[in-house]
Simulated assay, not measured.
Amino acid sequence: MKVMLDIKDSKAGFVMGLLQRLPFVKAKPLSKFQAKVLEDVGDAVNEMHLIKKGRLAAKDAEDLFREL
């Protein structure tokens, strides 16, 4: 199982030290860019689920291009 944690920078070293001492846990920090990409992808997936369920209106492709 994979888990993403959001930890204050001031406590990150402590938590990473604890996790790395556990033989059954592989822990590696993400860069700010990697964390942002994962968060954005997760948001996009959630939006797609809402669109498929009819709870959110889909945007027209032309509107998406105008936003870029």
Rank of each mutant, 00 (worst) to 15 (best):
M1S: 15
K2T: 12
V3M: 06
V3D: 02
M4Y: 01
L5P: 00
L5Q: 02
L5K: 04
L5R: 01
D6T: 15
D6R: 14
D6Q: 12
D6I: 08
I7M: 01
I7A: 07
I7F: 01
I7C: 04
K8G: 13
K8Q: 15
S10T: 12
A12P: 07
G13A: 15
F14K: 15
V15G: 02
M16I: 13
M16T: 10
M16P: 00
G17C: 02
G17T: 02
G17I: 00
L19P: 03
L19I: 05
L19M: 11
L22D: 07
L22C: 04
P23N: 06
P23C: 00
P23H: 04
F24D: 12
F24G: 07
F24M: 10
K26P: 02
A27G: 03
A27I: 00
K28F: 02
K28C: 07
K28L: 04
P29K: 13
S31V: 03
K32H: 12
F33M: 10
F33G: 03
Q34L: 06
Q34C: 04
A35M: 11
A35F: 06
V37I: 15
V37R: 10
V37C: 05
L38F: 07
E39H: 14
G42S: 06
G42V: 05
D43G: 11
V45F: 01
V45L: 08
N46I: 05
N46M: 09
N46H: 07
E47H: 02
E47T: 01
E47S: 03
E47N: 04
M48A: 11
M48F: 09
M48G: 08
H49M: 12
L50Y: 05
L50N: 09
L50M: 09
I51H: 00
I51W: 00
I51V: 07
I51Q: 04
I51L: 00
K53Y: 03
K53F: 03
K53C: 02
G54L: 10
R55G: 07
R55W: 14
L56I: 02
L56D: 08
L56A: 08
A57S: 14
A57W: 00
A57T: 08
A58N: 12
A58M: 06
K59W: 03
D60M: 14
D60L: 10
A61I: 06
A61V: 03
A61Y: 06
E62L: 11
E62G: 09
E62F: 02
E62N: 10
D63H: 07
L64Y: 10
L64Q: 10
L64E: 08
F65Y: 12
F65C: 05
R66K: 14
R66V: 15
E67A: 15
L68H: 09
L68M: 09
